[in-house]
């Protein structure tokens, strides 16, 4: 095995491609969970975003329209979840699972005419001058705009949650919906907004897969990434930058595996793949064990339905 063959820059670039869909989906779900809602339908929203992005890019020739369509498609599917859980008060866990089933089927149905077509190239937003620098050029300044968007999104959500009044309200709703309601916040409206935001993000995450990472459309192409996004949110203990990092770690495990193999290192890939999940459990235990710290992170009302009964 030849370690010198390892090109850290190239691996980092591959890592960015693998992690970006996860960043979008995880950040979206993080906001949803911060509002006290558990939407297990991330996989369904991602794949609907993947086909919407791909299809609209094909039809219009514009990747921007594609991304926009993915965003709307994800939000639309999320709207269904919001209507079910916030208005009809159906159970969130069951509804989220149904959403995944529905989304996978819907995407496959819509996508039938689109399989077997290559995706048009996604424009890279290489920053002139900087992108040609050695090492940091390809690492920092030569990506598609969605990569930068994922950074902006993470920063934005961090700011929203920690520095803005809207974030304070959102967290209050997730923390104690009865109290928030008593103060006069419209719990259902706020949660619905968060759910739509989460859906939009998941949609874009899916579109990244079909438009940049793979880039093509085939049925079932999200291959469980929506579920990984759910794990990342917990791993991150509901903190945006940690979710960003988590996406890179979860994505990184698979990249590391493939690169190690390509270098000729024999590894038991399944056991390596398990580790992020086990680490997530450990992280969860650590942040939950200290009740004071747990309260700062985990939304207390996560998954609890709110009834305006007072």
């Amino acid at each position: 095995m030849d370690m010198s063959a390892l090109n850290p820059v190239a691996i980092a670039v591959a890592l960015i491609v693998a992690a970006t869909p996860l960043v979008f989906a995880a950040i979206g779900e993080l906001v949803v969970e911060k509002a006290g809602v558990l939407n297990l339908g991330v996989e369904g929203m991602m794949i609907v975003g993947a086909i919407a992005g791909f299809a609209f890019t094909q039809e219009t020739g514009s990747t921007t329209v594609g991304v926009l369509a993915a965003l709307i498609a994800g939000a639309l599917l999320a709207a269904l979840f919001a209507f079910m859980t916030q208005v009809l008060m159906s159970n969130q866990v069951a509804t989220g699972l149904a959403l995944t089933l529905f989304g996978l089927g819907l995407a496959a149905m819509i996508g039938q005419p689109y399989s077997g077509i290559p995706a048009p190239p996604f424009p890279e937003l290489a920053i002139p001058g900087l992108s040609t620098l050695p090492v940091i050029g390809p690492l920092l300044f030569a990506h598609d705009w969605l990569v930068y968007a994922s950074l902006v999104l993470t920063a934005g959500v961090w700011w929203l949650l920690n520095r803005s009044r809207a974030g304070l309200i959102l967290r209050a709703v997730g923390e104690n919906h009865d109290a928030a309601h008593a103060i006069g916040y419209r719990v259902v409206a706020i949660r619905t907004a968060a759910i739509l935001f989460g859906g939009a993000c998941a949609g874009v995450g899916g579109a990244y897969l079909s438009m940049v990472a793979a880039p093509l459309w085939v049925e079932g192409m999200t291959a469980g990434r929506g579920w990984i996004a759910l794990a990342i949110v917990v791993f991150a203990s509901w903190k945006p930058w940690r979710a960003f990092l988590g996406a890179y770690i979860f994505g990184g495990v698979s990249i590391a595996q493939l690169n190690l193999q390509a270098m000729g290192v024999a590894i038991e890939s399944q056991y390596l793949s398990m580790t992020p999940y086990l680490v997530t459990i450990v992280v969860l235990v650590i942040i939950s064990a200290d009740k004071a710290r747990a309260r700062m992170n985990a939304p207390a009302c996560l998954g609890r339905p709110f009834f305006a009964a007072g």
Binding site: L80, M84, L88, M89, S90, N91, A94, T95, A98, L99, L101, F102, G103, L104, G105, L106, A107, A108, M109, Q112, E219
Partner: peptide, 22 residues
Amino acid sequence: LPAAAISVFQGMLLFFLLGMDV
């Protein structure tokens, strides 16, 4: 029928059943 149509159909059934509970 494509397999996908069946899962859309099942998804609808679940949504209606869960929604009707209200």
